[in-house]
């Protein structure tokens, strides 16, 4: 009986669902506070993202007359569902290991594209020209960063797979187990190009400056989000909070999933690692840069992260230990 309920528990409460949402909103709160401090502002309190979400939940939402209302209303639900499922797949070292029945790294890779697709559908269905521009920009960004992301994931899969006697392993549990036994990949120089590639992908994947181009507020008025209000907008915020946890949690899983032991301590350690990763790859980056144009961002991704990803793959393949 309990075993039948456990997928629901994992999806709705822990580690997906409520826990992931609270975690994501907390991360966003810290991000805003640290960014404010870096700009010598006071900044909002840590719980501001929670308050914002509750406020949106109590507001009416309006649908523009020119929108395709059904698609418009469903797009954020698709995004949230995708991310909730993805949160289910993120292992927490020493606390939670996703069952292989839920999916593996490849499923996660596909799920990671869902938020961008949801934004694209929502923007296109909103009937606003800014939504349409956001659509095309989101599409270009996806083309730009999916390549390096895939290469970084593949490097880790190959590294772990080759070391354990197979070809490439896409099992998240296996990747965590390997690192717990042999030390985190973060400290292996062979994996450093993959780490850097993944760090490059984070800002674009999470849509923050300098790569918040599809939702550029001062250029196209937040593009796809422009026409959203009330609960639907709140759903997009939930989606982006969940995505924060998923992307950062994936980074932690791939490169440093080791845990100190003890349930609460391991959990706190996981959140701490996510925080450090976020401050380094989101907060500091967005405070120190300005937004790029779409063509500049596109050519940037096709130059540096792409090259690094390929280099990382070659490095992993050439340094494997021949039996």
């Amino acid at each position: 009986m309990l075993e039948m309920l456990s997928p629901f528990f994992h999806l709705l409460l822990f580690p997906g669902g409520l826990f992931a949402l609270a975690c994501g909103l907390l991360l966003k709160g810290v991000d805003r506070k640290v960014a404010a401090r870096l700009q010598r502002r006071i900044g909002p309190p840590l719980h501001q993202p929670f308050v914002d979400l509750i406020k949106l939940w109590h507001k009416d939402s309006s649908v523009p007359e020119t929108a395709q209302s059904r698609v418009f209303a469903w797009a954020p639900h698709v995004g949230v569902t995708g991310m909730a499922l993805a949160a289910l797949l993120i292992p927490i070292g020493g606390v939670y290991t996703p069952s292989g029945a839920y999916g593996d790294l490849l499923v996660l890779l596909y799920l990671l594209a869902v938020p961008a697709v949801a934004l694209m559908i929502g923007g296109a269905a909103s009937g606003s020209p800014f939504g349409a521009i956001g659509f095309s920009r989101e599409m270009s960004m996806m083309l730009a960063y999916e390549g390096p992301l895939l290469l970084a994931l593949l490097s880790v899969a190959l590294k772990v797979g080759l070391a354990t006697g197979g070809v490439a392993t896409f099992s998240l549990a296996e990747i965590v187990r390997y690192q717990q036994a042999h030390g985190a990949l973060l400290f292996d120089p062979v994996m450093w190009p993959a780490v850097v590639t993944f760090l490059f992908v984070i800002p674009a994947n999470l849509g923050v400056v300098p790569f918040d181009i599809p939702e550029a507020e001062s250029e196209i008025l937040e593009g796809p989000l422009l026409e959203y209000s009330g609960k639907e907008l709140g759903l997009f915020q939930i989606m982006s909070a969940l995505k924060m946890v998923v992307v950062l949690g994936l980074g932690v899983t791939l490169f440093c999933p080791t845990a100190p032991g003890g349930l609460l301590l391991s959990l706190a350690w996981f959140i701490f690692k996510c925080l450090v990763l976020m401050v380094a790859s989101v907060t500091v980056v967005r405070s120190a840069t300005g937004r790029l144009r779409i063509d500049q961002a596109f050519s940037f991704y096709f130059k540096w992260p792409e090259a690094l990803g390929v280099a990382s793959l070659i490095l992993v393949l050439t340094t494997r230990n021949f039996p």
Partner: peptide
């Protein structure tokens, strides 16, 4: 100008 190019730290610095 800083704000429009999404460089809010620059915006804050100049305004300060």
């Amino acid at each position: 100008l800083g704000h429009i190019i999404g460089f809010d730290s620059l915006f804050k610095h100049v305004m300060e």
